[in-house]
Design a binder for these strands. Structure first.
Lengths: 250, 250
DNA sequence: CGTACTGTTGAATGGGTTCAAAGGGTGTGG
DNA sequence: CCACACCCTTTGAACCCATTCAACAGTACG
């Protein structure tokens, strides 16, 4: 087993080339040389404990960060101190894209459990993306995807009722967990009711009540942070407004 | 006068190099050769009439569009038909960035008055941005700025009361108009109350009522679509939550 | 083992929505 | 050029969903 490890113990440092999250952070079809260039630039495994800040709004922007393990929230604050959770981030997802525009981080990133991130020094990535077209394209795509995601959140915040917001939130988590090989319909929430509420534009009491109501209806089971989607189809029907209440988990 | 025009009447086509909006769409400090490359790729002046669609959600994505003259809204729709205005766009602003991720447009773009746009074929821009580092950087910045903007809208939709939303909306318009050389405190709205409401997560009646209330308080004057900011400082105080109600127009 | 935090639930309140009606402006066709 | 129709806007009144205030239970952590 050990004969695949080269050189010194320092190379225990995992590399992008054999990272299982590779296809989430990086484009497909990189050749070995390109992969080596990336491995040389990307610093793996900065570790954070639950509650630690990865970066803060207003700090100088130098790097993007990819979640390796763990779970993060990002928040923005208004001048008078009101705080809004703008997203939850799990393995393979990139944080910090909002910092590029002004060379300052535009939000806080906080670990919601003990976590590990990879650091992608942005100016180096910019340089590399000139030489590696698929990398450039990949970054454009990632940023665009973030814009699409934000637009969908705007749709949610602008149009949906509490029940629909919670259902959309649970289904979104479910789908992201499923795409990482976890159970789609049985998971542990990493965030508090208050954080869910902040993200969804609701108060924590409303989140709690709504979860209870969904449980009463038999769509879900709630045991503190342990959530089971019993009737994901019904949740989906709630979000889409359609009448068909099948149990298709997608 | 005519001696600055070269070749045929076809070259009446305005070019980026002498476009007054250059600094909004393109990076600063391009050399003449780079500028010529861009001029060769960017197609100017597609004209739209009020109500026309520039593109529709689901259509194949090929180009970004920069507003040259006029005014646009972009909207996303949920599966069950609810519609959300995700932004209003004036001269120099780019639309279509959300289409990059899936090669499909993710929203509808509709002209709110007779307008002209420049078309930026994306694959060509991608290629150019490899050769022109400042162009690549510019696109990363633009996309990042869009993400920041969306996060601020999320903050607004998640945390603010009707009065604050309207104030923030008016101040934002004011600021963007001012930066284009128009009056900051006296302007014509290009969109209906319903479109404002959709953008701000309010019903059109609430928009109307709130404008009336702000007028009653003497902060603004409303005459149909003609808006005057009489006390912009008070509006700002409303948004920031601060107590200082000075009249500083910024 | 106690203290503090997180979550649940109830009751009262309130801001925004819904429903409704009427006025004003705009644009088109006669 | 006028008349009519339609849309946009305003305003009122009743209603409702989410918030606020409050009390209590369960859990985590020192």
């Amino acid at each position: 087993m050990a004969d695949t490890i080269h050189f010194s113990p320092a190379s225990l440092k995992v590399s992008c080339s054999n990272c299982s999250l590779r296809e989430l952070c990086l484009p497909l079809g990189l050749n070995p040389d390109e992969m080596a260039q990336l491995d040389a630039v990307i610093r793996q495994s900065r570790k954070l404990k639950r509650g630690d800040h990865l970066f803060r709004s207003g700090e100088g922007f130098k790097s993007l960060f990819a979640v390796r393990t763990g779970f993060f929230k990002t928040t923005v604050a208004s001048q008078d101190g009101r705080e809004q959770v703008t997203g939850f981030h799990m393995s393979g997802e990139l944080m910090g894209l909002d910092g590029i525009s002004a060379n300052l981080h535009g939000c806080d990133a906080i670990a919601l459990e003990d976590s590990e991130v990879c650091e992608l020094p942005f100016t180096r990535m910019e340089e590399l993306s000139r030489d590696i077209p698929s990398l450039q394209r990949h970054f454009y795509r990632l940023m665009s995807r973030e814009i699409v995601r934000d637009q969908n959140v705007m749709l949610l915040l602008g149009n949906m009722k509490a029940e629909e917001r919670i259902a959309a939130f649970l289904l979104n988590l479910s789908q992201r967990l499923a795409s990482r090989g976890f159970a789609a319909n049985d998971f542990i929430l990493r965030m508090s009711r208050e954080e869910i509420g902040s993200f969804l534009g609701l108060k924590l009491e409303t989140v709690s009540r709504t979860l209870s109501k969904l449980q009463q209806q038999g769509w879900i089971k709630v045991d503190h942070k342990h959530i089971q989607l019993v009737q994901p189809g019904e949740l989906k029907a709630l979000v889409t407004g359609c009448a068909n209440a099948n149990t298709n988990p997608m």
